[in-house]
């Protein structure tokens, strides 16, 4: 059973130098309050694995930093592994100008599978995506193989200390249901970290989420925060 705690208590679990995954796609499905609270702790030198850097202040639906953007704006990230960082100019600024942020770009479908591979006990992913491109030079690319005449890249599994998950409803057994397009990277990330922290919009009684609608199983969840 997951522990139920406050966001302010849970953010203390994350220490300098940790590797964190943050679910969401441009903030949609990200644990929004958790990200904001983590930015207030001053924890630093984090490696961040996520689809993107969220919307920076002034660009997203709240007008404030949105999702992972809080941590980038606050210079808490030393390395970001992502698929697209063009929406948040703070990333290019910290990479090109300030040289404080390392950026590692991975194709979106590959990143999803690399995380899934880790969480599903697989040693890597063979994908045709990225063949003939700079992805072949990525530290996450372990080589190239030809299978039935087609070239594939072997991409490494990706693991984190913490997976930070946003969801719409979590029941008291930790089962998660995702509304709309919020499931995105959350589903795979919840399988690929030592500690999984879920921030739901709403906590409901067991039974309110039908068993067949559970997308992240309570057995994977360590903390539910409110």
């Amino acid at each position: 059973m997951p522990k139920f705690t406050t966001i302010d208590e849970a953010v203390k679990l994350i220490k300098d130098g940790d590797t964190i995954m943050i679910g969401g796609f441009l903030g949609c499905g990200s644990p929004l309050k958790f990200c904001e609270a983590l930015s207030k702790t001053g924890v630093k030198d984090l490696t961040l694995i996520c689809n993107d850097g969220g919307f920076p202040e002034g660009a997203g639906p709240t007008g404030q930093n949105y999702g992972a953007a809080w941590l980038i704006a606050n210079h808490q990230i030393k390395k970001i592994v992502a698929t697209h960082v063009g929406i948040n100019p703070n990333i290019a600024k910290q990479n090109f100008d300030e040289k404080t942020l390392e950026v590692c770009l991975i194709p979106q479908g590959s990143l999803a599978e690399m995380i899934r591979a880790d969480g599903n006990g697989l040693g890597g992913v063979l994908t045709p995506t990225g063949v003939g491109t700079l992805v072949e030079d990525s530290p996450y690319c372990l080589g190239k193989q030809t299978i039935n005449g087609r070239d594939y890249l072997l991409m490494a599994p990706v693991h984190a200390d913490f997976a930070l998950i946003g969801c719409t409803k979590t029941d008291k057994a930790g089962n998660c249901w995702y509304g709309g397009t919020t499931s995105n990277f959350n589903i795979v990330m919840a399988t690929a970290a030592d500690t999984v922290i879920v921030e739901p919009d709403e906590i409901v009684e067991v039974g309110e989420i039908a068993p067949e609608d559970v997308r992240t199983f309570g057995m994977l969840v360590d903390y539910v925060v409110k």
Binding site: L26, C28, N51, E113, G179, G180, F185, V188, R215
Partner: peptide, 28 residues
């Protein structure tokens, strides 16, 4: 619902009747 349904540009979007929502691994 700008918080729960967005398009690939992160902008509020919608779904047609008969559509489905999927996660990133399934999508790719």
């Amino acid at each position: 619902d700008k918080f729960h349904i967005v398009n690939a540009g992160g902008q509020p979007s919608g779904i047609i009747p008969g559509g489905s929502f999927i996660d990133s691994a399934t999508s790719f």
